[in-house]
Write a protein that binds this DNA or RNA. Structure first.
Lengths: 140, 140
DNA sequence: AAAATATTTGCAACATTGTTGCATTTGATA
DNA sequence: TATCAAATGCAACAATGTTGCAAATATTTT
């Protein structure tokens, strides 16, 4: 679905106003193969926006399922396109301890585990930490 | 191992000084079946300690693998005893959206998934979000 | 048991992030 | 182009993470 759409079309299809901040954020995220933090996105963005605007833009985009949020520990938040085409519904994320990058592991789908009696799950956060391919090659 | 030890012994066995803050934290965590946040622990603690002391105590206890840290999204941090006896090495955690409690799911062990070629993992964060048994019963 | 030493604590201070209210600006629509 | 709803920028504040440093405390040595 998103694969063939541009930021404007994505916003339109979600009934969101096409503001330059939102368009920019989507564009930057689309152009990256990694999940990006607020600051990384800001740095790659053309315009300059207030922190609050950023904050609210992310909130809106996440609520509209245009973007999804990946949290690593309590100090790192990254965003990636919530591309229903390329991403399975529930996939794992990989965090590289060396380069601090986060990628969606589309190949690693999450199977809901059997929970203790009486519990029910609605969402699963699965973050695998380790060393990514690039950093491993660098270390050799 | 820990099951039969008291806070003093635990600290001794890790070559940590037996300070009242550390002992208190361990005691409070030991006495709870749920993971506890910094504030929850502070409230149940006898003495009064500076925020910095708390912060550094947790850091020390986590680094010594006496306690482990569970992070839910980017706004909730809880601590649980890292009991090598009762807890499997890598287990999942459950976060209840209703009562905001976090428990270790010792029955849900994490199997390391097959990663893309070149990646290696050292640690896995697995948080299942949903409704816990108690909250479900309450809703009926 | 007291002194010496190394560690921990409390305080002050600051950075980062999350969050809200409100006036102003902007995008969509009639 | 005028109107209206929504988004933005600014100010302000809360919570949390973090460090440096002097004072207090725990452990070790005499």
């Amino acid at each position: 679905m998103f694969a063939t759409m541009n930021p404007k079309e994505i916003l339109n299809s979600h009934n969101l106003k096409r503001t330059s901040c939102r368009e920019g954020i989507i564009e930057v995220i689309m152009s990256s193969d990694k999940a990006l933090s607020e600051n990384e996105i800001r740095d790659r963005l053309f315009g300059n926006y207030d922190r609050t605007t950023f904050y609210r833009s992310f909130k809106t985009l996440v609520e509209s399922s245009i973007v999804h949020k990946i949290v690593v520990d309590n100090n790192l938040v990254k965003y990636a396109l919530d591309n229903q085409l390329t991403h399975k519904n529930e996939h794992a994320h990989f965090y590289c301890n060396e380069c601090n990058s986060v990628v969606c592991l589309e190949s690693v789908t999450i199977e809901k585990p059997a929970l203790p009696e009486g519990f029910s799950s609605s969402e699963i956060d699965f973050v695998i930490k380790g060393t990514c391919k690039l950093c491993k090659e660098k270390a050799e």
